[in-house]
Amino acid sequence: MLAPLDRLRAARRDQAGFTLIELLIVIVILGVLAAVVVFSVRGINDTGEAAACEANVSTAETAVEAFYAQNGSNPASLAALVPDFLKSDPSAAAVDATVRVTYVAASGTVTGGSAC
């Protein structure tokens, strides 16, 4: 009577491994899947910048409206809204140009950067 390990070895002797063609096909399939993932993830950054720009514009508009409601006039700049109405100035040079907000005091209009 054969030991269980010997029976396992005898059964494995007749089995063949993967061929080179099968391995190459698997590698090509994995490469195609990786390329699809890379190209689909590239666009996520663009939508994130657009959302950040729209959020900055909306926040600045709300702060200008609150300032107008309290003081009866538009602020001279968005920097005048810090720290009472805004945490930081969204029109400052430190903010990325794609999401930076511009403000026109005469009309009280707020516009967004290039990502909006």
Rank of each mutant, 00 (worst) to 15 (best):
Y68H: 06
L86I: 03
A79I: 09
Y103V: 06
L23V: 15
I27K: 11
A66S: 08
A55W: 09
L86N: 01
T47Q: 07
G48R: 07
T62Q: 11
I21A: 15
V101I: 08
A106L: 11
V110D: 02
T62R: 08
T47D: 11
A11V: 07
A80Q: 09
Y68R: 13
D84T: 06
L20R: 13
A97V: 10
E22Q: 08
T102C: 03
T47I: 09
A94L: 02
V99N: 06
L78V: 05
E49K: 13
F67M: 04
V28D: 12
A10G: 12
L23G: 11
L86H: 02
A51D: 14
L20D: 05
V37Q: 14
I21T: 13
G17E: 04
S107Q: 06
D96C: 03
L8S: 14
N45Q: 11
E65C: 10
T47R: 14
R9Q: 12
V28Y: 07
L2A: 13
D46S: 04
V64R: 01
V101Q: 00
M1D: 14
A93Q: 06
V99M: 06
V101K: 00
T109K: 13
I21S: 14
G112L: 00
V38A: 12
R7K: 15
V32N: 07
R42V: 09
L24T: 06
F85E: 00
L2R: 12
V36L: 12
N56I: 02
T19P: 01
N56H: 02
T111A: 03
C53L: 06
A35T: 13
I44K: 04
L30G: 10
L81V: 05
L33P: 10
R100T: 07
A34L: 10
A79T: 10
G43Q: 08
V57S: 01
V57L: 00
R7I: 09
L30I: 12
G72E: 07
A69R: 10
Q15M: 12
P90I: 04
S77H: 05
V95N: 00
F39E: 13
G113P: 02
V37W: 12
S40T: 13
A115S: 04
F85G: 00
Q70H: 13
V95Q: 01
A50E: 14
S40A: 10
L33D: 15
R100Q: 08
I44V: 09
L2F: 12
A105T: 03
L33T: 10
N74H: 02
L24R: 07
G113F: 00
V104M: 07
M1N: 15
S77W: 05
F85N: 01
R100A: 06
G48D: 08
T109P: 03
R12C: 15
F39D: 15
L24Q: 07
P75A: 01
C53Y: 02
V32C: 10
E61L: 05
L23W: 11
S91E: 02
V110T: 05
P83D: 01
A76T: 13
A16I: 08
A94V: 08
S58Q: 09
P90G: 01
